[in-house]
């Protein structure tokens, strides 16, 4: 693993205070972070890397909301990294809309964090070593995977939600993830916004179980997320 990658991972996983410091400092902060050793960088980020494993908790709406929070943390971290190290060859339109998506995912993450309050799982540490952020195809393929998986995750968890207001909130978010997915897919291959690789013969998206989704998500996380109440324990 290249040190540079580790630092990128740390950058995208900052707790809010550090994050604001970074945002305020702008590009200059990249240099500062680059000069920092990895361990020291992690030490700075309070609460972030404390646990290598977390669980979304007992069966119920809080667990489902934390499940969503975990996925939104991952997406937000990914797009923050994308926008901070934009791949070469991106059009102005691409940059603008990918930045929009970043802001949407950050808003989703912060929404869940605020809504869950003390019930929220901790900040997760992502691991994006498999993604080459300088490569358009690598970034967009990852983005497509995140968005399509997000859609199947919300669709699959909808029936587990007990409070109708939370179901509506999940619905408000999943359609935005689907809008993102359609955009990203068209960037990769025009017209693939809803092709047969994601839809079934009835022209419908598919759902995935919590276990299946977390299995995918954990491949991009250093902090492994389990849902033992829903039959999934991260290996």
């Amino acid at each position: 693993m290249k040190p540079e990658k580790l630092i990128e991972n740390a950058e995208v996983n900052m707790a809010r205070r550090s994050f604001l410091r970074y945002a305020g400092a702008g590009v200059a902060a990249v240099g500062v972070l680059s000069a920092t050793s990895c361990s020291k960088t992690f030490d700075d980020y309070k609460g972030a890397p404390g646990k290598s494993k977390i669980d979304i908790g007992a069966t119920g709406d809080l667990a489902i909301l934390n499940y969503a929070y975990a996925l939104e943390q991952l997406e937000a971290a990914f797009y923050i990294n994308v926008a901070a190290h934009m791949y070469t060859g991106a059009s102005a339109d691409e940059i603008a809309l990918l930045t929009d998506i970043r802001d949407h995912e950050v808003a989703h993450r912060e929404f869940f964090k605020a809504a869950l309050g003390t019930n929220a799982i901790p900040a997760l540490t992502p691991n994006f070593n498999a993604i080459d952020f300088s490569s358009r195809s690598s970034v967009l393929a990852a983005a497509r995977a995140f968005e399509d998986t997000g859609v199947t995750a919300y669709n699959g968890a909808g029936y587990l939600i007990q409070n109708p207001a939370y179901l509506t909130l999940a619905g408000k978010i999943v359609s935005v993830e689907a809008r993102h997915a359609a955009y990203i897919r068209n960037l990769i291959t025009p017209g693939s916004f809803a092709d047969t690789t994601v839809l079934d013969a009835n022209g419908m998206d598919k759902q995935q179980s919590i276990a299946a989704v977390l299995g995918i998500a954990n491949s991009f996380l250093t902090t492994k997320v389990s849902a033992s109440s829903y039959g999934y324990v991260a290996s």
Partner: peptide, 24 residues
């Protein structure tokens, strides 16, 4: 359709496709 796995999931799976269309 709260809590009704089959019809709710079907509705959600159409819902997100309409969103893909809207985006396109």
């Amino acid at each position: 359709l709260l809590g009704q796995q089959v019809p709710l999931t079907a509705a959600l799976n159409i819902h997100s496709v309409e969103a893909r269309h809207a985006s396109a």
